[in-house]
Design a protein around this nucleic acid. Sequence first.
DNA 1: CGCAATGGTCAACGAGTGTTGAAGTATGCT
DNA 2: AGCATACTTCAACACTCGTTGACCATTGCG
Lengths: 175, 175
Amino acid sequence: MRDGYERAAVRAIAADAGVDVAIVYYFFGSKEGLFTESVLAGPEHPLHQLATLLDEGTDQIGPRLVRRFLEHWDQGDVFEPLLALWRSADIQPLARKVLHDSLAGPLAERVAAEFGAADAELRVELVASQLAGLAFARYQLRIEPIASTSIDDLVAWLGPIVQRYLSDPSPHTVG
Amino acid sequence: MRDGYERAAVRAIAADAGVDVAIVYYFFGSKEGLFTESVLAGPEHPLHQLATLLDEGTDQIGPRLVRRFLEHWDQGDVFEPLLALWRSADIQPLARKVLHDSLAGPLAERVAAEFGAADAELRVELVASQLAGLAFARYQLRIEPIASTSIDDLVAWLGPIVQRYLSDPSPHTVG
DNA sequence: CGCAATGGTCAACGAGTGTTGAAGTATGCT
DNA sequence: AGCATACTTCAACACTCGTTGACCATTGCG
């Protein structure tokens, strides 16, 4: 998760875990097997949190989601599976499946039920891409000033945007 | 640019160029030298285009930027230095410097002069991260439905957002 | 006790990596 | 012509990578 798929060496992972390389292959078969079984088990995925937030009501859902997202990440609970999938985009079909099937899909159903939006899947993906871009700039690239801006300020900027993606009526296409 | 820094082999690059490996080292010194000299010379960078758009006036700058951004990318002019820096985030200090110094910095000055915004740098980075997240979802991950949504629809969604980032008054912090 | 299966270690294979040094060829200046 | 400089080639070094096969250790069952 820390280094991305290509950079991560099976030997190093095994060493960090305090075991021999061969037992990794004994249990997981291959490097890709290790990856899939590791990444499929993440329950505290950033996007997953949107579902729990919906349980607390839909009022001000945008700012609340942005705040929780940033707080978790700032705090350094490096549970960063998003950046992991980021850097591991070599396994594209796999990353795609994980992201879409286990997150966007079911989540979109909830959003649709809650807001009655027809294009719920697109809305969820727009939110996800906005948050992903933010996380990449702030936590991976660490460009300034976005890396040092306070959570409150970022919530003030992004909260209404996310709110809009989720709850506004669909825009009519121009062009 | 196609494979990212780690995956790209100097031998393969040299072979594609029809030359021996050693002449790459003769001219560029190292793999990193080749990378920097390659990436620093991109004048048609996605973000760079914001500057040319400002020359055509600031009216509806948000939708126009989103449209040009998507059209370039859909068209497959694979000038994708953004995704390259993406996947090459190993060279972090380098990627940071390239992105910030050569793009966000000067661009923010123009935005500040045009809109009179005090926090122009943050605004530019917010736009950049939104577009970057979109590009990643649509072109690299290719998750649906965002990958198949028409340019017109995406402009309708994202245009006002980008416009807001650039021209709206700064939000007052709540929290 | 003996035997099979599970869990674990070690060393190695083959392929691929960035990099370099020695040797070759051409080119242009004096 | 002679020589230095720029360019090009080839082969190798010193890794690291994913993966595997041959061995030991332990355990539990008959």
